[in-house]
Design a protein around this nucleic acid. Structure first.
Lengths: 150, 150
DNA sequence: TACATTTGTATGTATATACATTTAAATCAC
DNA sequence: GTGATTTAAATGTATATACATACAAATGTA
């Protein structure tokens, strides 16, 4: 019985809009806690994992820091510092862009790709274990979230 | 057109479970960014706002730090430090619990209640503006999130 | 060309998250 | 009661978020 009222011991909400905000924040924490546990043995955070996936999606094409920033899940995060952390771990490379010396080209390294490969199956299995929904329900949830943001 | 694929420029997802995780993280960031903008003029963070609401729900009954922790939206957060911040602002009071000297009783102050009152209408209006769903859709989303967590 | 404006990235700072460790008080076992 | 264990809260430390600001390179304009 996973009702949000029980989970956070709040008897009732003023209105369903208020409630859904709380419910989303709470569910987010539920998911991130699971993700953290999964990624911790690999030495990366969920945010760093996301940046690596963005870079893999480039199929070898270099990407700039600001392009990563635009595509991050948390727009207020700091791509510059996350890239720096990944570089220290040898998971990405950073080279000055020749056409515009302000820009920095980022590519995922072989080591970064290997890490993603090792993680892939585990992440997929963990997601399916942690999300107690049928596939039609997941599709519906995706539609509602997309519509929510307008 | 708010599809998550467009928002983060990812062409497709391996499976809908994977996609709904990304969608929830992204939607969370969307909501928290809105909340931050709303609360900033009042000098509190979303997490501090949540603790104040928990305390208001007690109707004057004191609550311990660990009880606040249990009811926080982010279970990994740090109630002890958040309470400290609120105390510095004069929004809560902290007294040693007489029956168990390890525990600390927390109550919201008059100033804290006034802050919540001033915020109330604004938060409600902001929530309804930021959530582009009908009421039936909101109810459905609440149900799906509750079920997701199992 | 000279100078203002814009853009890409990095840095500074306060807060929060994630988790380990510490400290003191309460409870349990004997 | 003494010592071990558990519990409540605080503290330590690394990372991330949320902004503001700085700085250098590029662009626009007179």
């Amino acid at each position: 019985m996973g009702k949000i009222e029980d989970a956070i011991q709040q008897k009732e909400f003023k209105d369903p809009f208020n409630k859904v905000v709380v419910n989303l924040l709470y569910t987010h924490s539920y998911l991130v806690t699971s993700q953290n546990g999964l990624l911790k043995p690999f030495g990366i955070s969920p945010e760093q994992y996301n940046v690596l996936r963005i870079l893999r999606g480039q199929n070898g094409e270099p990407t700039t820091v600001s392009s990563i920033q635009d595509r991050m899940l948390n727009k207020m995060s700091n791509a510059s510092r996350l890239v720096e952390k990944l570089k220290i771990k040898g998971l990405v490379e950073r080279t000055e862009c020749p056409s515009d010396r302000r820009q920095v080209d980022i590519v995922i390294t072989e080591k970064g790709l290997e890490l993603l490969n090792r993680l892939q199956n585990q992440v997929e299995r963990a997601n399916q274990n942690v999300i107690h929904l049928t596939e039609p329900e997941v599709l519906q949830l995706n539609d509602l979230l997309d519509k929510l943001r307008g």
